[in-house]
C-alpha cells in the first residue's frame, strides 16, 4: 500500500511537478493549493503518512498550516517537511520548534525529496 502524502503549494506548476515526482516515487498524493485546503484535506484523510508544505503561501504559511494540523487529534506525529527558497536561520528554527522533521531548499531535487520522505516516515515508525 503506498504511503499517502499531503502536499500544499500555491503554485500549480510546483504542485504538478511534485505530484509527478512523488507518484513516480511510489506515493499516493493529495494536493492542496493553499494552507486552508491543506488543513481540510488532513482532516478528511486520517491516513496521511507525511506532509510536504511550501513555506510561502497566500493564506497561511506552511508552518502555520502544519501547526494547525498537529493540533488535530491523532495528527501530532505526522512527519512534515517544508519546501522553500527561504533558509534564514530564524525561519528554519521556527520549523524545528513546530516539530517538522526536515527543511528542504528549493529548487528541489526529486530523488532527494523521495529519499527524505521515506527517511522521515521510517524514523516515525522506529519511534512508534
Amino acid at each position: 500500500m503506498p504511503h499517502k502524502v499531503l502536499i500544499a503549494d500555491d503554485s500549480e506548476l510546483l504542485r504538478n511537478q511534485l505530484m509527478k515526482d512523488l507518484e513516480n516515487g511510489g506515493f499516493q498524493v493529495l494536493a492542496a493549493a493553499n494552507g486552508g485546503e491543506g488543513i481540510l484535506l488532513a482532516k478528511e484523510n486520517p491516513d496521511v503518512a507525511v506532509i510536504v508544505a511550501d513555506f510561502n503561501m497566500p493564506d497561511i504559511d506552511g508552518l502555520t498550516m502544519i501547526e494547525r494540523i498537529y493540533q488535530m487529534r491523532g495528527k501530532k506525529d505526522i512527519p512534515a517537511l517544508v519546501l522553500s527558497t527561504e533558509s534564514s536561520q530564524h525561519i528554519v528554527e521556527r520549523g524545528r520548534m513546530v516539530g517538522i522533521r526536515a527543511w528542504m531548499t528549493k529548487p528541489f531535487n526529486a530523488a532527494k525529496m523521495v529519499k527524505a520522505l521515506h527517511a522521515v516516515i521510517a524514523a516515525r515508525k522506529e519511534v512508534a
Partner: peptide, 9 residues
C-alpha cells in the same frame, strides 16, 4: 548543488 539540500531535525 543540483538542489534539494535537506536539513533533518
Amino acid at each position: 548543488s543540483d538542489g534539494g539540500d535537506v536539513i533533518f531535525f
